[in-house]
Amino acid sequence: MRIQTAAVQTLRHQEHGAVVPPVHLASTFELDPSSEDGAYAYQRGGNPTRAQLETLLAALDGAAHGFAFASGMAATAAALSTLAVGDEIILPASVYGGTYRFVDQVLPGRGVTGRFVDDLGELTEADFTPTTRAVFVETPANPTLRITDLRRLITLAHRHDALVIVDNTFMTSLLQRPLELGADVVVQSATKFLAGHSDLLAGAITTDDDRLAEAFALAQKAQGGVLSPGDSFRLIQGIKTMPLRLERQQDNALAIAEHLRGHDDIARVWFPGSHSEDEARIHASQATGTGAVLSFELAPGRDRVAFLHALRYPGFAVSLGGVETLICRPATMTHEAMTPEARERAGISDQLLRFAVGIEDVRDLIEDLDQALAASR
């Protein structure tokens, strides 16, 4: 079953012929007094609606196991909570600011070391130590859109018995399938493209590893960061239209990136594969599209604040993947947890703007960008 069909048909057959799954709001469930057993006991440990969603998440990735969390960071935290005292994890310097904060401020208290490197694509055997237990990767990277060769990284990490955790939020399983390339864990902020309407928080983990699946189930039950039944239902409904939405958003993003390249008011434009021919080749080999996020810098002398004020359609807000177009300044919004030195190392300048493209008519978006750029002069 192709993913466009799986998004709609995976949960089709419901009790009484209902075409959508029911919402089970119960916080607790009656057990058999004789055996004190039952499929569900308490919502934190399991819920029928969340279980339906988790079945769908696994189906989208072709995974054996899926898990739904209360936010993307809750999912990332659960994935990183598999690390133990004395372990090390390698991450890119440009990793999402929330992940950076967790690794920089939370993991040290648990005895786990995070090592940030400029380019995961340049990792060699010498970069792995006996304590290296995992590599965390975003490709495309947020917000620089740099590309990492997943096949090379996975092969290298596995030679050193290190897990590979891929944040696939920007691509989703529609455009990139890391588990099929050999990754151990995929995490996503389901708030973004999967939900698609900027109206709920959710996170997802998928894996084929039974041992890791047990750890993630324990994280749900022990830490409690699970997705509510109501939001689980709404995410199921959002996923059904994700392929259509993302395809339209990607078409819009490609047209906008092409329009901005060479524009007199734009200094640089970043999108997956734009940094080099090698990155373009790698991305084309492991993904089937470029997604719907791009970043750019205004040309010298342009007034960034005037530009942002003049925009009519894009909202000046964090997040991405919703039906509406959003623009943000990563240095002070999504990556504010990083020090100025860390942002410079990651290639996130104070002038960089991240543009998350929605489903509006692309002609309106381009016209709006043009008039805002004129206002910035």
Rank of each mutant, 00 (worst) to 15 (best):
D32I: 06
F136I: 13
T113V: 00
L181R: 00
W270T: 01
E367T: 15
E297S: 01
F170N: 05
I147S: 04
V305N: 13
I348F: 04
G238H: 09
A59Q: 10
Q249I: 03
V135H: 11
L174G: 02
M73T: 13
A222F: 10
I89G: 08
D278F: 02
A356F: 15
T241K: 08
M242G: 07
P340F: 01
R110T: 04
T191H: 08
F316Y: 15
A253E: 09
G114A: 06
N168T: 09
V164Y: 02
G224I: 14
H24M: 09
H13V: 12
A59K: 07
H65W: 08
R110Y: 09
D364N: 09
A337M: 06
R304Q: 13
A93G: 00
H283Q: 11
M1Y: 12
G291M: 02
T28G: 11
R304L: 03
H16Q: 10
K192C: 13
L218A: 15
D265T: 00
M242S: 02
N252H: 01
I147G: 09
F128E: 11
A375Q: 08
S81V: 02
R50E: 02
Y40D: 03
I236Y: 10
H158G: 06
D278S: 04
A195R: 15
P229G: 02
A39F: 06
E247T: 15
I3N: 09
T172D: 01
R211V: 09
G121A: 02
A134T: 04
N168Y: 01
F69S: 09
F29C: 01
P22C: 08
I89F: 02
L218R: 11
A374I: 04
D199R: 11
E336I: 10
R363Y: 05
F69G: 06
G321R: 07
R50Q: 00
D251H: 14
V106D: 14
L163C: 04
I239H: 10
S285L: 07
E297M: 07
L194P: 01
A70H: 06
A93L: 05
